[in-house]
């Protein structure tokens, strides 16, 4: 199958973040960047589908500055066949603008399946995959935790609040990937060497007008320091008292 995977490069989610002097971006100093977690699951899912079917092509797309090429190379070192860099000075906060650039690129590509992460860590918005599907007029299944494709049909499990939906759909289709589908492999040394020779093309992203902008970024207020009220069963009367009189939740 011909599978496209659209990835984003995001900072390590365990980092301690600071706001840059501009007040509208994070301070990138010292942060480690990699393929976003959910996008990583999507890359792995695509590779496994094509390994199982014994053929096909996995193509990785990323929009952003030149640094995203490092993440594209990493996806190729995991096993993807080639990569496309849609060059932009920065990734805008406007998910529809990004979706337009991706739809323009993916539209004529003849892909059977287009995968995204269900959302990215940094923007935490989950817009681009679904909007791209809508612009392409393709069926779309979001937040998928299990995915199977065979004979031009896909089946998937989709997580809802406290429930799950099992769905089927015709290919070509867009699927956004949640945890549970596949744990991404580590690139092998052989894979890393091979990735250096795989094709990576770069062209300008056709973003169009950007209508959502970041005015300000702030760190959330700190929680007051925690307090240990006692040890073992003996502390329970005091806990119940505090829940009743101070927190007023009992």
């Amino acid at each position: 199958m011909k599978i496209a995977v659209c990835i984003k490069r995001t900072p390590d989610s365990e980092s301690r973040f600071r706001i840059a002097a501009s007040g509208a971006t994070i301070d990138e100093t010292g942060l480690k960047y990699d393929i976003d977690d959910f996008a990583g699951y999507a890359v792995e899912a695509a590779l496994q589908i094509n390994e199982k079917s014994g053929g096909g092509e996995t193509v990785i797309f990323a929009l952003g500055p030149d640094t995203v090429q490092e993440s594209l190379r990493k996806a190729m070192s995991m096993g993807a066949d080639r990569a496309v860099h849609l060059k932009a000075d920065a990734v805008p906060a406007d998910g529809i603008a990004i979706a337009k650039a991706l739809a323009a690129e993916l539209g004529g590509g003849g892909f059977d399946l287009i995968l995204f992460g269900k959302h990215s860590f940094d923007s935490s918005s989950g817009i681009v995959g679904t909007a791209t599907a809508e612009l392409l007029g393709l069926p779309c299944v979001t937040s998928v935790s299990a995915l199977h494709v065979a004979g031009g049909t896909g089946t998937a499990r989709r997580e809802l609040e406290g429930a799950a939906e099992l769905v089927s759909f015709a290919l070509p289709a867009v699927v956004t990937i949640d945890e549970g589908v596949a744990r991404p492999r580590y690139p092998s040394l052989k894979g890393i060497m091979a990735a250096k020779k795989k094709p990576l093309v770069s062209r300008p992203a056709q973003l169009g007008p950007v209508r959502v902008t970041v005015q300000k970024m702030e760190l959330p207020p700190e929680r007051p320091a925690g307090r240990i009220i006692g040890e073992g069963v003996a502390a329970i009367p005091e806990l119940v008292r505090l829940l009743q009189t101070e927190a007023k939740v009992l």
């Binding site: 900072p11 994070i26 935490s124 959502v212 005015q215």
Partner: peptide
């Protein structure tokens, strides 16, 4: 955003 670690104001 950033899993609740950064609060953004968007226009």
């Amino acid at each position: 955003g950033y899993a609740n670690k950064v609060i953004m104001t968007l226009v």
